[in-house]
């Protein structure tokens, strides 16, 4: 259970003390009906393709992960050791559930899974990610993606 009082020290203090950006308002985009949803996954696990330069600690960039990439060709370059990686090492779907998403598309529960999924470095200051996030947003809309499932680690 990940309530802050259940996270071991010193990580609890680190998480509790993070300088989180504050947002005055919460934007809200009405979702498409399920059959018209084209869904991409976005992870903060610092995932990269095998052979790519790892994402660094304060990296504001993101990486593209084609949905048909072989499981062993997606590696984790996250800087933190304070989250479990043994789950990822056994099953990519623990952090990037691309197989589950494809199954939902095959069952007709969503319109389609995106052809590419994405990853940022979760250790980067969220405010520093704004420009690249907006760049990614524009790219997704141009690709016909209208829905994003975000998953931290």
């Amino acid at each position: 259970m990940v309530l802050l009082n259940e996270v071991p020290e010193p990580e609890r203090t680190v998480i509790a003390g993070l300088d989180l950006p504050r947002f005055e308002k919460t934007p809200f985009t009405p979702a498409a009906v399920p059959a018209r949803r084209r869904v991409a996954l976005l992870s903060s696990a610092g995932l990269i393709l095998r052979g790519e330069r790892p994402l660094l600690a304060r990296d504001a960039g993101y990486r593209e992960l084609p949905a048909d990439t072989a499981e062993g060709d997606i590696l984790c370059s996250h800087v933190s050791t304070n989250f479990d990686r043994t789950g990822f090492q056994q099953d990519l779907n623990v952090v990037l559930p691309r197989d589950r998403l494809r199954e939902l598309a095959e069952a007709g529960d969503i319109g389609a899974a995106a052809d590419t999924h994405y990853a940022f470095m979760g250790a980067t200051d969220p405010a520093a990610l704004a420009d690249k996030a907006h760049e990614l947003g524009g790219k997704l809309l141009a690709l016909g993606v209208n829905t994003v499932v975000l998953a931290p680690v």
């Binding site: 990940v2 949803r37 996030a133 998953a151």
Partner: peptide
Amino acid sequence: MSALAHYLEGDGLATTLVALVREH
């Protein structure tokens, strides 16, 4: 990740976040 949800939603995408740290 919550910040990324704000940014992308503001761009016109519908987002849903799986949150691990409830307080965040």
